[in-house]
Simulated assay, not measured.
Amino acid sequence: MQTRLVAYEALNAMQQQQVGAIEVHPEQLPFSGDMYCALNTLLVNPSPGVKGFALLADDIPVAFLLLKRPPALPHWANEHSATLHALQVDRYQQGRGFGKECLRALPAMALEAWPQIKGLELSVDTHNLAAMGLYLGAGWVDSGEAYKGRVGYERRLCWRFNP
């Protein structure tokens, strides 16, 4: 199976419709949100600071994520970073390594979108053990900073590009 991470705007109409049908398990919704909210963020009020990406497996979307830069950068992020949001792997495709593949391909896509960035950041709920394991296992580094988020306490994780 071939996978590739592509910009949302590069998808054809059928693939965009398939992205809209991506669903996560109900217990993941408080952490990742749903596709309606993610696509709403991307499409309703377009911003040069928000980009969407879909992971295609044999040209079929199986995962989606958002990246943000100013003016959409969250308050907790470093101004020289892009932030990862709404990473969602379709519930029927989970456990097949697609989340890891998104994270593997993400740095190159982020640099292609914004060559000036110095790294990536994300915020993850400390109780979201699956996500914490995914990010830490992929080489993201816990910054040691925690703050009160929507669901519980959040940890900030960073990915720095090689100099």
Rank of each mutant, 00 (worst) to 15 (best):
A86Q: 14
R104W: 06
M35V: 10
A77K: 05
Q15L: 10
A72H: 14
L122E: 03
M1W: 10
L42A: 08
K68A: 14
P115L: 04
D142R: 00
L73A: 11
N128F: 11
E154F: 01
F64D: 02
S81E: 02
A72V: 09
N78E: 08
G133V: 04
L87I: 04
H80A: 05
A77Y: 07
L5T: 03
S47Y: 15
N45M: 11
D90Q: 01
R150N: 09
E101Y: 05
Y36T: 15
N78S: 09
A105K: 13
W76V: 08
L129D: 05
E112S: 04
S143A: 00
A82P: 01
H25S: 12
N78P: 09
P61M: 00
H25I: 13
V6K: 08
R155L: 01
G152V: 05
F53P: 09
M132E: 11
Q88V: 04
G52A: 14
A54S: 15
L55N: 11
Q16I: 10
P26T: 13
F161I: 00
P163E: 05
V19T: 02
P107E: 05
W140N: 03
Y147M: 08
Y147R: 11
R91Y: 04
L136A: 00
K148L: 12
Y147P: 06
T126Y: 13
N45D: 13
T126F: 08
F161W: 00
F64I: 01
A86Y: 13
G99L: 06
